[in-house]
C-alpha cells in the first residue's frame, strides 16, 4: 500500500463528518507523523515526573476526556477547567475553552509546558524525545486531527435509516431542534458553532469565577460522544446529562452577560427525558491514528 493510499484511508471521515478538514500547508498529514504523534500522545516521558501523558486527561476509553471535574496534573495539582473531549478538533477554529490557541499546533504544547499539568520545559521535551520541539508539536497536532467521532445512530438516521433512532430519540431530536433551542449553539456536523457563549456557569456569588474568553464566555463544545464525557461544562460542575438539561431548562444562571439565546424553556419531564435519550444517540465510533 502506498503512503498516499494509506493516508486516504486514514482520512476517510466517518459518516456524518465533512470530507474537508482544514490542515495547515506547513504541517501536512503523513502516516509517519501520525504514528509519531500517536506515540507521543501516550508517552509519559512528556510529563516531568513521568507519571502522566496527554492520554491521562484525554483517555480514548472516555472519548478522549477524563471523567474528572477538572484536570489533574503532576503532583496531584488540580486545574480550574474540565479536560475537554478532544474529538473532531481537526474541524475546530480555535482551541481551549477560551479559544486562546488559534491552531492545534499552538494548542498541543501548552499543557505539556504548563507547570500545573505536565510540567515540562521545551529543553526537557527535546532531550527526552530526541526531537525538535517543532517536530513534537507538528506530530501531536496531526495525531489529534485523526481523532474523529461519527457514524453514530444519529448519523445513520440522518443518512436515511429511519430505524436507527427510537421513537423516543426522534422525539428528543425534535425537542433539540425546536423548543430546547439547542441548535442555536450546537449546530453543524460537529454539533458546535465554535463560538463563545456566556451560559452563566461561571457566575458565582454575584461575580464571574472565570472570565473565559471574556465576560464569562466559553466555547460551545461538540456534543458528539457527550454521553461518555461527563461531568459537563467548562468547570465540570454539572454531573449528568439530565442535570445539564435541567440547567438550560431554567435558562442558565442570570448574569449581566448571559447569552440572549438562553431563556427558560419550560420543557416537560417527557421532553427532558427524550432530549437526554437523543443526546445518547450521538455516541458513535471514535477513530484515532488509523482507519
Amino acid at each position: 500500500m502506498t503512503p498516499l493510499l494509506m493516508l486516504s484511508l486514514v482520512l476517510r471521515p466517518p459518516l456524518g463528518l465533512d470530507l474537508y478538514m482544514p490542515v495547515p500547508d506547513a504541517n501536512p498529514l503523513t502516516p509517519t507523523k501520525i504514528a509519531l504523534g500517536r506515540k507521543l500522545f501516550f508517552d509519559k516521558q512528556l510529563s516531568r515526573d513521568g507519571t502522566l501523558s496527554c492520554a491521562t486527561c484525554h483517555d480514548p476509553k472516555l472519548a478522549f476526556s477524563d471523567g474528572r471535574e477538572v484536570a489533574r496534573g503532576i503532583n496531584g495539582q488540580e486545574g480550574t477547567r474540565n479536560a475537554p473531549a478532544i474529538i473532531n478538533r481537526g474541524y475546530g477554529r480555535t482551541f481551549f475553552w477560551d479559544g486562546r490557541a488559534k491552531s492545534l499546533e499552538q494548542q498541543v504544547l501548552e499543557p505539556i509546558l504548563n507547570p500545573k499539568e505536565l510540567g515540562m520545559t521545551e529543553a526537557l521535551v527535546e532531550r527526552r524525545t530526541h526531537l525538535k520541539i517543532a517536530e513534537v508539536t507538528a506530530a501531536l497536532a496531526i495525531y489529534v486531527r485523526t481523532i474523529r467521532s461519527g457514524d453514530s445512530r444519529f448519523d445513520r438516521y440522518a443518512a436515511g435509516s429511519q430505524r436507527a433512532l427510537s421513537a423516543l430519540e426522534k422525539a428528543g431530536l425534535a425537542v433539540f431542534r425546536s423548543k430546547a433551542r439547542c441548535t442555536a449553539c450546537h449546530a453543524g456536523p460537529n454539533f458546535t458553532d465554535e463560538n463563545f457563549h456566556n451560559t452563566g456557569i461561571a457566575w458565582r456569588n454575584g461575580e464571574l469565577a472565570d472570565l473565559g474568553s471574556g465576560d464569562g464566555k466559553f466555547k460551545a463544545p461538540t456534543l458528539r460522544e457527550v454521553a461518555r464525557t461527563a461531568p459537563y461544562m467548562h468547570d465540570g460542575s454539572i454531573p449528568t446529562l439530565r442535570d445539564v438539561v435541567d440547567y438550560y431548562d431554567r435558562g442558565g444562571n442570570a448574569n449581566p452577560n448571559l447569552d440572549e439565546d438562553l431563556r427558560p424553556l419550560n420543557l416537560t419531564a417527557e421532553e427532558k427525558g427524550a432530549l437526554v435519550e437523543f443526546l445518547r444517540s450521538l455516541s458513535g465510533n471514535v477513530r484515532e491514528g488509523k482507519r
Partner: peptide, 20 residues
Amino acid sequence: HTWQIALVSVNDGAVRGIKS
C-alpha cells in the same frame, strides 16, 4: 438550519458532505 456544500449521486441520492 446550517448549510453544507455537498455532492449528491444522481443515481441514488447518496450524499457526500464536503464542507459545512
